[in-house]
Simulated scan of single mutants.
Amino acid sequence: MSGSTFGSLFRVTNFGESHGPAIGCVIDGCPPGLALSVQDIQPELDRRRPGTSRHVTQRQEPDQVEILSGVYEGISTGTPICLLIRNVDQRSKDYGNILDTFRPGHADYAYWRKYGLRDPRGGGRSSARLTAPMVAAGAVARKWLGERLGIGFRGCMTALGEIDLAFEGWEHVPHNPFFAANASQIEQLEAYMDQLRKDGDSVGARLYVEATGMPPGLGQPLFDKLDADIAYAMMGINAVKGVEIGAGFASVRQRGSQHGDDLTPRGFRSNNAGGVLGGISSGQDLRVALAIKPTSSIRLPKDSINRAGEPAVVETFGRHDPCVGIRATPIAEAMLALVVMDHVLMHRAQCGDVELPVPPIPGAIAGQP
Rank of each mutant, 00 (worst) to 15 (best):
G138R: 10
A139S: 14
I163K: 14
G155T: 03
P133E: 08
P174V: 04
R142D: 00
E162D: 15
L160W: 11
W170F: 01
R142V: 02
P177G: 02
A139W: 13
F153Q: 02
G152K: 15
R142W: 01
H172F: 15
A137V: 02
F167N: 05
V173C: 05
G150L: 11
T158C: 12
V135R: 11
L149C: 08
E147C: 06
K143I: 02
T158R: 12
A141Q: 06
A136E: 12
G146S: 14
F167W: 13
P177T: 07
A166V: 14
R154T: 03
T158F: 04
G152Y: 00
E168N: 10
I151H: 11
V140H: 09
W144A: 09
F153T: 04
G152D: 10
P133N: 07
K143H: 08
A166Y: 03
I163G: 01
G150I: 09
L145M: 13
W144I: 01
D164T: 14
A141I: 07
P177S: 07
P177M: 02
R142H: 01
P133G: 06
E171G: 10
T158W: 08
I163C: 11
L160S: 02
G146W: 12
I151D: 11
E162F: 02
D164I: 00
G146P: 08
M134E: 10
N176I: 01
T158L: 09
V135D: 03
G150E: 10
R142S: 13
R154P: 03
A166H: 12
R154Y: 02
W170C: 00
P174L: 06
P177N: 03
G155R: 10
G152H: 13
A139T: 07
E162W: 03
V135E: 09
F153C: 04
L165I: 15
C156N: 09
L160H: 05
D164L: 11
G161D: 10
H172W: 14
V173S: 03
T158K: 10
K143F: 08
V140N: 04
V173H: 10
M157D: 00
R142Q: 15
A159I: 00
G155Q: 08
R148Y: 01
T158H: 08
G161H: 12
M134D: 00
E162S: 14
F167C: 06
G155I: 06
F167A: 07
V135H: 05
G152E: 13
E171T: 06
W170M: 00
K143Q: 07
G146N: 14
A141L: 05
E168Q: 15
M157F: 02
G138L: 07
M134N: 10
A139H: 12
F167H: 15
W170E: 01
G155E: 05
G155Y: 06
R148L: 11
A141S: 03
M157K: 05
W144L: 13
G150A: 09
N176L: 00
H175D: 15
F153N: 04
H172E: 12
